[in-house]
Design a protein around this nucleic acid. Structure first.
Length: 815
DNA sequence: CGGCCCCGCGTTTTT
DNA sequence: CGCGGGGCCG
């Protein structure tokens, strides 16, 4: 356990203030690169240091990665045993725990499962069909988004139907039946024992208004569990989350929220920047801390971003400054097509590598829309530059994975109709549309789920043929058998079993086409993922026991005594987690391509932002509202502040969009940056000042300035070209097992779990200097045990001697 | 039951 | 232009 001095050691005075002021409401406005996470974790460590019971601290984040990262850092500062007792996680995962605990009050089964956006969309679609409405008019995605917005604003289906504004609005949009779809959807979801993401928050709100069986308000019980509440990325909270927080903090008012209003980019999803702007209204006694020192970017970049964001009206006034040198000016790059733009970026990267000794992972190429990646990919491929894309399409969105997941969901919650539909005839087992229609009719008539309908004895009477009936019975029996095994078998063996028994694995195995083989590989990858999850859980269980001093030898924990990791545990871990689509080795030393949204929280020495054009960035064109324009500006602010060393902003005067060539003028944002921070501001100022097309003004000018840098061999304005060599760039580091969005600042104040590539246990020898992903540096004292269960006694510098199971521990040799 | 073709559509996306 | 979904045909 660290002492107070150590916690405060690497913090600047402002950060220190924010860390030690623990009681009462705090608003920490943390500019980009200002050490936000460091302050949050130090604050928790500080509380622990002061003797606060960790279980009475609630810390909420948006992503699981952020939660994990914070937990790791706190573990490094305050010890694993304290860190693991914290109530820390995403809004959704923490609240799901409470919802399960109080499921009866809400009328949900204990094993309710969670629908992802895809599941919800298809559920909506089926509701639209059942209500005999036109899918063209009631596009499932659109309807879902409308319902989602309603839920985020705590508008239940009943409230929606009674809300004249909403109804009028829908009528004017020629979609008057949305309220009926909403009602139907909610009814089906409840009957299926399923919640969508928004329901988790909505029901949490509802729960906090209920009384338990003994008549005690639930809010007293839950809010009473905590003395301190901390929230990360507060600018991204929606109304639903805001209200929950308010209820949870009403007794002690020890709420600490951290965020940056300038980086609020999720309004389109219901996030309310007002939550941050109005914090003082709810908590007049609050203390404001502004972290304005940016440790990430050079002064030029920080100052330039400041001038941009100053154009926004809705913001908390603050002026960020850099702790670093002035650095290079921002370079603009004008091109005439998206291909040319991509080539310019690729050339600039090559030049940087040659002249600055940069490596691939030092580059981030950001864009507003995913469609822009294509041209860039082609340019990079042509030059053999390795890259990876943070794709929106995740592992869990692949059809074959969805199939397997649907089986798993159905085992845990047989009432899940969407899962049932998906797998009832997968692989084909002679239960076609006709049979499914009958099942649907029965379910609807008897108010049952599909599964219950499929089990009901009177199914023949509805006209199911005996052959099909037998197969249906076989199917339900198979699911029920697995459902019953959940207590005895762990997630892995159930997954293997259902893959085999359902015939799905054989089905994919028999498909010898290339795609078929890839699907099979994905299924195998899913098995690995389940196994990995179980190992991870076992590993941390053992480490926790050791850290707790309950045991000091990993061998005291025979495998069979480890708590079993159930299928339901696994499902919850995946349903609330966006996929880790990009494996670590795929991101290793590659150029990163991603949308600006995905880049939030990341940093790169060299950043390119492509497509700086009106109608693209800012997107939307004329029908964009002032609020939306401000959000676009914040989005661009996020893009700019990803850069540590150098920033290049490019635009194309024309590009292919939806199969058509479109002319665009440069983004207004380019002109909003004070030109003194730009190396070649004339590139944008000369042209298209007032809707004039770039081509015309170029012809008028004689075309000498603003020429693309690689026409005619001129390269004077090449993006981020031969900048003077400066500090050796720090490289972004990705967390082991990380999903797309995790990147750690390299100037982290404490040792943390890094980009961990563990060495094989077989390579470890007594006497070696090693590093453990959690416990840090240490020396191997001895290695014992038989080859199948090797254990090592390791003396850690920070935490003393421990015995670890090598099959679980992640250890690498330090040379 | 599966494959092929045609049509429509086309920001951003933690959970 | 490139994709996914739905419908129709073999």
């Amino acid at each position: 356990m660290m002492n107070e001095t150590v916690i405060l050691n690497d913090l600047d005075p402002r950060q220190k203030e924010a860390v030690v002021h623990t009681d009462g409401p705090s608003l920490i406005v943390a500019g980009a690169g200002s050490g936000k996470t460091r302050v949050l974790t130090s604050r928790i460590a500080w509380l622990l240091c002061k003797g606060t019971d960790p279980s009475r601290i609630l810390a909420l984040t948006f992503t699981r990665k952020a939660a994990g990262e914070m937990k790791d850092r706190i573990a490094a500062m305050a010890g694993v045993s304290l860190a693991r007792k914290l109530c820390m996680g995403t809004f959704h995962s923490v609240f799901v725990r409470f919802l399960r605990q109080y499921h009866e009050l809400l009328g949900y089964p204990k094993d309710f499962t969670i629908y992802d956006t895809g599941d919800s969309t298809s559920a909506i679609k089926h509701c639209v069909q059942e209500l005999k409405l036109d899918e063209k008019v009631y596009k499932p995605k659109e309807v879902l988004s409308r319902i989602s917005m309603a839920k985020n604003n705590l508008c239940t289906s009943e409230a929606y139907a009674a809300n004249t504004a909403a109804i009028t609005n829908d009528r004017q949009a020629r979609k008057p039946e949305i309220h009926r779809i909403y009602a139907k959807y909610q009814q089906v979801m409840l009957a299926n024992g399923v919640m969508d993401f928004d329901d988790i928050l909505l029901n949490m709100n509802k729960l906090l208004t209920l009384k338990d069986a003994s008549g005690e308000p639930v809010v007293n019980q839950i809010a009473g569990l905590f003395d301190y509440v901390l929230v990360d990325e507060y600018q991204d909270t929606n109304l639903s989350q805001y209200l929950i927080l308010r209820k949870l903090c009403q007794f002690h008012r020890n709420i600490c929220v951290v965020g940056d209003d300038s980086q609020s980019i999720y309004a389109f999803r219901g996030a309310k920047i007002e939550n941050m702007l109005n914090f003082k209204k709810d908590y007049p006694e609050m203390k404001l801390f502004a972290l304005e020192c940016n440790y990430r970017s050079t002064e030029n970049i920080v100052a330039a971003a400041n001038t941009l964001i100053a154009k926004n009206a809705a913001r908390i006034p603050k002026t960020c400054f850099s702790s670093r040198e002035a650095g290079e000016k921002i370079v603009l790059e004008k091109t005439y097509s998206e291909m040319e733009e991509a080539s310019a970026i690729a050339s600039a990267i090559i030049r940087r590598i040659r002249e600055n000794g940069a490596s691939y992972q030092d580059f981030g190429i950001l864009y507003r829309t995913n469609a822009q990646s294509r041209a860039i990919e082609e340019a990079l491929r042509k030059r053999n530059l390795p890259y990876f894309i943070f794709s929106g399409n995740s592992f869990y969105e692949r059809a074959e994975i969805k199939d397997m997941m649907a089986y798993l969901k159905l085992i845990v919650n047989p009432r899940d109709d969407e899962a049932f539909r998906r797998v009832i005839n997968k692989p084909a087992r002679g239960i076609g549309d006709t049979s499914l229609a009958v099942i649907a009719t029965v379910a609807s008539a008897e108010g049952k789920s599909f599964f219950e309908a499929a089990c009901s004895p009177g199914l023949e009477e509805y006209g199911i043929k005996s052959g099909a009936l037998g197969r249906i019975r076989e199917f339900t029996a198979m699911i029920l058998a697995h459902n019953a095994l959940q207590g005895d078998k762990d997630a892995y063996s159930l997954t293997l079993s259902i893959a085999e028994k359902s015939g799905l694995y054989r089905f994919f195995k028999e498909d010898t086409t290339i795609e078929g083989q890839s699907r099979l590989a994905n299924i195998d990858e899913l098995f690995n993922s389940v196994k990995g999850y179980i190992d991870e859980r076992n590993n941390s269980y053992i480490e926790d026991m050791i850290a707790d001093g309950q045991i000091n030898d990993g061998s005291a924990v025979p495998a069979e005594s480890l708590p079993q990791v159930s299928l339901s545990d696994y499902l919850e871990s995946t349903s609330l987690l966006s996929a880790t689509d990009v494996a670590d080795d795929e991101t290793a030393n590659r150029i990163a391509l991603m949308t600006v949204h995905s880049a939030k929280g990341l940093e790169f020495p060299y950043v390119f932002v492509a497509g700086m054009e009106e109608n693209l960035f800012p997107s939307g064109g004329m029908m964009i509202t002032p609020q939306e324009l401000e959000e676009e500006r914040r989005l661009f602010y996020v893009a700019m502040t990803r850069a540590k060393q150098a920033l290049c902003l490019s635009f194309a005067t024309a590009r292919m969009r939806n199969g058509k060539r479109e002319a665009n003028s440069p983004s207004r944002f380019l002109k909003e940056i004070d030109s003194k921070y730009i190396a070649n501001p004339y590139v944008v100022q000369d042209i298209a000042d007032d809707g004039d097309s770039g081509l015309v003004s170029r012809l008028l000018r004689g075309g000498s300035s603003g020429r693309p840098s690689f026409q005619g061999g001129s390269r004077s304005s090449a993006p981020m070209g031969a900048g003077r060599p400066s500090v050796q760039p720090q490289r972004p580091q990705y967390v082991a097992g990380s999903g797309p969005r995790t990147l750690r600042k390299t100037n982290a104040p404490t040792p943390v779990k890094e980009d961990f590539v563990p060495d094989s246990p077989l390579d470890l020898r007594a006497g070696m200097r090693i590093e453990h992903n959690r416990f840090g540096l240490g020396n191997i004292i001895s290695i014992t045990g038989d080859p199948s269960a090797l254990k090592a006694t390791i003396r850690f510098d920070a935490s003393g001697e421990k015995v670890l199971f090598l099959q679980y521990a992640k250890i690498r040799i330090v040379h």
